[in-house]
Amino acid sequence: MKIIAVIPARYASTRFPAKLMQDLGGKSVIVRTYEAAIATNLFDDVFVVTDSTLIYKEIIAHNGKAIMSIKEHESGSDRIAEAVENIDVDVVVNVQGDEPFIDKKPLEELIEVFKKDSDKKVDLASLMFQITDKEEINSPNNVKVIVDQQNFALYFSRSVIPFPREENVGVRYMKHIGIYAFRKQALLDFYSLPMLSLEASEKLEQLRYLEYGKRIKMVETAHGSIGIDTPEDLEKARKMV
């Protein structure tokens, strides 16, 4: 089974423009992330896919592998699908470009899903972890997921799901971490299928997979992601480096 990592890297960012090119201990954030992905030793290859010539040149200058997007894309899945269309690969892992402190263990757990899936019932795998703080649960910035007994995703939402009409019944609230592992065909199918109403309403690309009947296996982890979304996050990251 051939497994690669693809790091989608947009230059523009609503909350923190050009964050991937910010200096982090003598190297840019995107180079740190690329090198961290390679250092996991989990992948047969690692690529950065970007719409920015600045990011493309940055990766190439550090002897990395980069792919320029040909089209404009609304989602990370679209950008990755275009990039891997002509690459011989079985499983593609989406690594976030703004997470230079990659935790190897949850990525291993995602890959293990496909190694055990001999019947090929899983189209995608992704991560979730339990949240208990009411403010976190209610925040539309935290995407929640509910799953069936086999941990296949039933629905993702920015709203509180399930709604706590009856409390003290053992409901756990699970936050979705947007790191995915895909079968190549699931990505290509996504790329060719139009957006439907649920995805358009919630602005969550993973709903397109569910709306078209793809199966998303969720892996529970205790490891929250450490991303750089704001200048304050960057300052914390610099202290960590």
Rank of each mutant, 00 (worst) to 15 (best):
E167K: 15
E167Y: 08
E167M: 13
E167F: 05
N168I: 12
N168H: 14
N168S: 14
N168V: 11
V169I: 15
V169H: 11
V169Y: 13
V169F: 13
V171C: 08
V171M: 05
V171W: 09
R172N: 10
R172Q: 11
R172A: 09
Y173L: 09
M174N: 14
M174L: 15
K175H: 12
K175G: 00
H176S: 06
H176V: 01
H176I: 05
I177T: 08
I177M: 06
I177S: 11
I177F: 06
G178L: 11
G178F: 11
I179H: 13
I179E: 14
I179A: 12
I179C: 14
Y180A: 02
Y180G: 04
A181H: 10
F182S: 00
F182N: 09
F182Y: 15
R183N: 01
K184V: 06
K184F: 02
K184Y: 02
K184C: 08
Q185C: 07
Q185N: 06
Q185E: 14
Q185A: 03
Q185G: 01
A186G: 07
A186I: 04
A186C: 08
A186D: 07
L187M: 02
L187N: 05
L187G: 10
L187D: 00
L188M: 12
L188Y: 03
L188F: 03
D189V: 03
D189N: 14
D189I: 00
F190E: 10
F190N: 08
F190T: 01
Y191D: 04
S192Y: 01
S192P: 05
L193W: 10
L193N: 01
L193T: 05
L193P: 10
P194W: 09
P194C: 06
P194M: 05
M195I: 14
M195E: 15
M195V: 14
L196M: 11
L196R: 15
S197I: 13
S197T: 14
L198W: 12
L198P: 05
E199S: 03
E199F: 06
E199M: 12
E199T: 01
A200W: 07
S201A: 15
E202K: 11
E202F: 00
K203R: 15
K203H: 13
L204M: 07
L204K: 08
Q206V: 10
Q206W: 06
Q206C: 10
Q206K: 07
L207K: 04
R208C: 00
R208S: 01
Y209G: 01
L210G: 02
L210M: 03
L210F: 09
E211P: 05
E211V: 04
Y212K: 06
Y212V: 09
G213R: 02
K214L: 05
K214R: 05
K214C: 03
R215V: 02
K217H: 05
K217F: 09
M218T: 11
M218E: 07
M218V: 08
